[in-house]
Design a binder for these strands. Structure first.
Lengths: 148, 148
DNA sequence: AAAGATTGAGAGGTCAATCTTA
DNA sequence: TAAGATTGACCTCTCAATCTTT
């Protein structure tokens, strides 16, 4: 049950799952304690903000929010739109599509959420030096490549 | 929106979230493709198996399955028990409590799930050498400590 | 017919209230 | 009264089917 993967790699995988679970839980708790929306809203708002046009096609947004299905994203955007933080627009060149644009209110919300989010994970992350954090990032990125 | 946390640490955090999301999705897909239960079942069965008595108090199990609430665990155990993979028993010394024991069928299921789970994440993890995996695990464990 | 996105039905999750035993 | 665990009501997510446009 512990074989099939070398010990060090199994250890790393378990540590990865654990670290993520603990830190995400802290961030969710901190946001909730401040009456702010959950992390999933941040995960939607951030990629929209982090784009020159401040908007993305629904499918493109779904590609970036890896943690939710396309269907789930539709529902999530429904709620975020109802809160006035994003707005759906018909896609310009292809009327089958929809563009999702972050509103000024959405940008404000992002600016309120980020400090709380950051404060929740900062103490743990700052246990690493800059050099260590760079090593960690580099190692983690080696796991990503879409092939294999 | 990207400040408040040094760049390298922010990079590491994003890489962590991304790597976890991609690999967990692969594992879930592989399990589903083989008609096996989701990872959440593995997360419950494994800590039970990884114990001398092959059983844990419900609260203790909840402590180890960090990704779900206590209530959620009750529901999850309901389903796993209905599938015959675990069994609830009254706790010996304190009749308020419940013990959850893995059944032989549960052990068999664990043994069927693990190879599929491992195969899904192995190619990505094996991009790292043993030494690199050890470094990764060590860095990730530095993030965990329950304080801070 | 295929691509982009949404909807209906059902599974899974959470919070607050509840039940039982200590 | 408090601790351990479960239940009821509600919310969110997913799969398959659907609607619209290409």
């Amino acid at each position: 049950m512990a074989d099939d993967l070398p010990e060090p790699h199994l250890d790393a995988w378990r540590a990865l799952l654990n670290a993520r679970a603990v830190l995400v839980a802290r961030a969710e708790d901190a946001l909730a304690a401040d009456g702010l929306p959950p992390l999933s809203w941040y995960d939607v708002l951030w990629p929209l903000y982090d784009t020159p046009e401040r908007k993305l096609r629904a499918g493109e947004l779904a590609n970036r929010v890896v943690t939710i299905s396309r269907t789930g994203l539709t529902r999530l955007v429904d709620r975020i739109e109802a809160a006035g933080l994003v707005q759906r627009e018909p896609a310009p060149a292809d009327r089958r599509g929809t563009q999702i644009a972050i509103t000024p209110g959405g940008v404000t919300m992002l600016q309120r959420m980020w400090p709380v989010y950051a404060e929740a994970v900062r103490p743990a992350l700052l246990r690493l030096s800059d050099e260590e954090a760079e090593s960690l990032a580099a190692l983690l990125r080696r796991l990503e490549p879409s092939d294999s």
